[in-house]
Design a protein around this nucleic acid. Structure first.
Length: 572
RNA sequence: GCUCCCUUCGUCUAGUGGCCUAGGACGCGGCCCUCUCAAGGCUGAAACACGGGUUCGACUCCCGUAGGGAGCGCCA
């Protein structure tokens, strides 16, 4: 194993976002490619926003994607693999448990007069920032020339609230970025930033630098929003005598419309959906949503555009309204029926490309995690920001689903169903679920589609009497023609009543023979039948559609349909 | 406002001075297949932000302009 160590260091404030997932993926891939280690560290120095549930969620999201960490919090995957651990004894991996390390670094800095206490209040600083802006310059805090070390120490000892600031070198800092090249920051750009908060916790800057050193991190791949932090980190590393890791700043991922991808997008979409539903019928909408969220919370959320609801609550609201939320978190895509390998593939392409051609001259762009682990490199990471194109992701997922063996598709679908729609899983009789799966496979872009209310498999998941006959389809295929579709249907019913076996090939052959005997096209009998048993003019192949339903349901639906459209079923 | 970063089809990208009549993928259009919907096959439209240099030659190098993004927190 090489000395290379990369890391992913999320703060546990919610589910893993796709942007974070890509950062994790690239760090993972680089470690694998270089034969090093990939470690996970939880940055929970913001006590107010961190939660244990979020930690578990993030670990599960990473594990599902197949991004396994060599060191970090222990976790057992669904298939029983153990991740994490501390073979080099560099833990713990929660920053909240590493405070003595930060305190020691802080003490060294203060001792060397490289850090000092500052007593300004938030309001005072705000005023200074405002003033700087009015004077069209960048606000930067610098230690006053008349700073009195002894006096400051006395105030600290007297218990006066304060932060500790790092004395940024007066000279500018140039950082070397593996993707962007050298980036120079002028001396008027960097200031004496806070390294210890009023509550005694270190800031991100201090913690990250101390931890990366202690954990032997050699490469840091992170979002480009951190580029401006790099001079601070480098200065801190130099002040503490630490090594400077290789930095690489990744382009940012945006929504298709160019806005920044954020968790708020989900609240935004849900708020629109809720308001629309209320505009139609407010009382009904409220009643519908009541089980998902209590009235007071709903009111508050609706009133404050900046407020956010928990991911789960949002998902519940959307499902009550039959809508869909934009996928932002890894979990959203899992629930949405995406394959983890597809998400990994797609995310990898957002900012990196293999630069290889397939044998037929097309660019290589479909690859798995193993390929990434073998070929990933820093120089091929792009510099420009990328937009998250859901349509392309969907197309990738559909393609991957189609490539699965029928059996694998069935298994994937079953496990998705067990996790996200267990009540629907019961409606598919064991002996027909394979048939259902194979009919759904080429018609599904996600694992969620087969059983979606308006999906290609919906006809098989409702009771016979719940079929809504589409009026247009009925008019076109049942009422029209001479003889009418209904008449042909009534005639063909008898064949169906006794046909053996009641299986796709036999059913199609019977329909074909029926049509041929009457000198009509296959469609003349197929469409009336299809409308009668599914209510719609479109469904899987006729034989599959009928076989999935089974003889009893088919006959019941035909009878009900004929009765409903007022055509007596002549026998014989 | 200040500082930093970025800029090839609508989107993701290939392209490292002549291989470019700028390639691929998604999306979009057309045709074929067909009992419907899908799937599949074939096919079409679609880009080097702009202006100056450098060079025999610029998508590729340099400068400027425009546009986009990020940061300017006792958040990470």
């Amino acid at each position: 194993m090489s000395d290379v160590v990369t890391r992913f260091a999320p703060s546990p404030t919610g589910h893993l976002h796709v942007g974070g997932a890509r950062t994790a993926l690239f760090n993972w891939a680089l470690a694998r490619q270089l034969g090093g280690r990939f470690l996970l560290r939880i940055e929970d120095t913001d006590q107010a926003r961190s939660s244990a549930d979020a930690v578990t969620g993030i670990l599960a999201d990473l594990a599902w994607l197949g991004i396994d960490w060599d060191e970090g919090p222990s976790f057992t995957t669904e298939d029983g693999r153990r991740l994490g651990g501390d073979p080099r004894d560099v833990g713990p991996f929660f920053q909240s448990e590493r405070r003595d390390l930060y305190d020691a670094a802080l003490a060294r800095l203060i001792e060397a007069d490289l850090a000092y206490p500052a007593f300004e209040s938030g309001e005072e600083l705000d005023a200074l920032r405002k003033q700087a802006r009015e004077e069209k310059r960048n606000f930067r805090y610098r230690r006053p020339a008349d700073f009195d070390r002894e006096a400051a120490r006395a105030r600290v000892e007297a218990g006066e609230p304060h932060v500790v600031r790092f004395r940024m070198p007066e000279a500018g800092v140039e950082v070397e970025d593996a993707i962007l090249g050298p980036v120079a920051f002028g001396e008027d750009q960097v200031d004496d930033f806070v390294v210890r908060k009023r509550d005694g916790f270190p800031t991100y800057h201090l913690a990250v630098v101390v931890d990366d050193e202690a954990m032997g991190v050699t490469h840091v791949l992170r979002g480009q929003e951190h580029l401006n932090n790099t001079p601070r980190h480098k200065a801190l590393q130099q002040a503490l005598g630490f090594r400077v890791p290789i930095y690489a700043h990744l382009p940012v991922i945006f929504n298709a419309d160019g806005s920044k991808m954020s968790k708020r997008d989900k609240d935004k979409a849900a708020r629109v959906a809720v308001k629309e539903a209320m505009a139609v019928d407010e009382a009904a909408a409220r009643a519908q949503l009541a089980p998902a969220v209590d009235a007071a919370t709903l009111e508050r959320w609706l009133g404050d555009k900046k407020s956010q609801l928990a991911s789960e609550t949002l998902a519940a609201l959307a499902s009550k309204l039959g809508g869909e939320l934009p996928g932002i978190d890894v979990e959203d895509f899992r629930r949405g029926g995406y394959l983890p390998g597809v998400l990994v593939n797609f995310l990898a392409l957002l900012g990196w490309s293999p630069g290889e051609k397939e044998a037929d001259g097309r660019d290589l762009e479909r690859f798995d995690a193993a390929y990434l682990a073998a070929h990933f490199d820093l120089p091929r990471i792009g510099k420009g920001n990328a937009r998250f194109d859901r349509a392309k992701l969907l197309a990738f997922n559909q393609e991957s689903l189609a490539e699965l063996s029928p059996r694998s598709f069935q298994e994937e679908h079953a496990s998705w169903l067990a996790r996200y729609a267990p009540e629907l899983a019961k409606q598919l009789p064991e002996d027909r679920s394979a048939l259902f799966a194979s009919a759904m496979q080429p018609r599904s872009r996600t694992l969620a589609e087969p059983t979606a209310a308006d999906g290609p498999g919906a006809f098989a998941l409702v009771e016979d009497h719940e079929i809504d006959l589409d009026e247009k389809a009925v008019a076109k295929f049942l009422r029209k023609g001479e003889p009418s579709g209904a008449a042909l249907l009534a005639e063909f019913r008898d064949t169906l009543a006794t046909l053996e076996p009641f299986a796709p090939e036999a059913l199609e052959a019977a329909a074909g023979a029926f049509a041929e005997a009457r000198g009509i096209g296959m469609g003349k009998i197929a469409q009336p039948l299809r409308v009668a048993v599914t209510g719609k003019a479109a469904s899987p192949a006729l034989g599959d559609t009928l076989a999935i339903l089974g003889r009893d349901a088919v006959l019941a639906r035909i009878d009900r349909c004929l009765a409903e459209i007022g055509t007596a079923a002549p026998t014989g």
